[in-house]
Design a binder for these strands. Sequence first.
DNA 1: TGTGAAAGGGTTATTAT
DNA 2: ATAATAACCCTTTCACA
Lengths: 163, 163
Amino acid sequence: MKTNNQNLRDTMNLDPTDIKLLKLLQEDATLSNKELAEKLYKSIAAVHERVKKLKKAGYIKKTVAILDRNKIGIGLISFSQVFLKNHTFEALNEFEREVSKFPEVMECYQMAGSYDFMLRIATKDMEAYHKFLRHKLAVLPQVNTVQTYFVLSETKSETAYHF
Amino acid sequence: MKTNNQNLRDTMNLDPTDIKLLKLLQEDATLSNKELAEKLYKSIAAVHERVKKLKKAGYIKKTVAILDRNKIGIGLISFSQVFLKNHTFEALNEFEREVSKFPEVMECYQMAGSYDFMLRIATKDMEAYHKFLRHKLAVLPQVNTVQTYFVLSETKSETAYHF
DNA sequence: TGTGAAAGGGTTATTAT
DNA sequence: ATAATAACCCTTTCACA
């Protein structure tokens, strides 16, 4: 099974129809096979088959609803640059594992350059961020320093890649 | 119409079922009303009605497919801190408007603190990033300096908020 | 791979409670 | 606000090109 999947992923080639399909679905995943078929000048069955393949091959990782974060009480986004005390394999791994468990951490990236990790953090407000920093992030034994920048306003927030 | 919508948005209160619904859909928007109804111990019609309301009221902004960016040839993510030459209302607005048009810019945030904007940029590779910087971003007349940090690896990437 | 048709299931509007 | 019904549309599969 594992081998099969891997083979599919590595060998699958996207034709122009697949690319259009992916572009449409990453903008609006509620499009029905019928609607997609019309836009692509293909039959419903053909579209259905392609979408199934693209999912199986891992091109489509998941389909999700994007919520209005302010309406659900997520009022503060911040970016934290985290410097670790040391850069052993174990320290990096352990930090990644632990920090990924925090629900406030939406994204975690290991960075090239002057700091080690960049986190995008979503909290209700400044007080919630403060608690997160004091009781969760700063408490991790691998962490040396944390530098946080707060978002004033969100101008663009896109999930669809241009390719 | 506009007034109606606005009223709906501002006055709608979420009960525990709405919250569970939103949480389920932001993890997996392919769940059918039937599946949601089973998980929430409600009727299909009730779930259908709630989802419709939550969309209309703007809680659910859109539903999208999340693609595997490496498979579609987006190999480089970078964060750019952008400092503007001046901070007039017009300069800020004009920068936001122009930078949002670039497909490489996935996210644009105005920041509190020492720099003005934070961009998350997605490109095929370093060469594509370089072209973007030289011919698009650095060319904007409002831009003073750009400091870019490159992502080595993505440890966590989540679209679902914890609320 | 793509097509068209058939069967089954899901979605949606309507009704009533 | 929820439940039940019915009509409709969509998804899914299959035989065939």
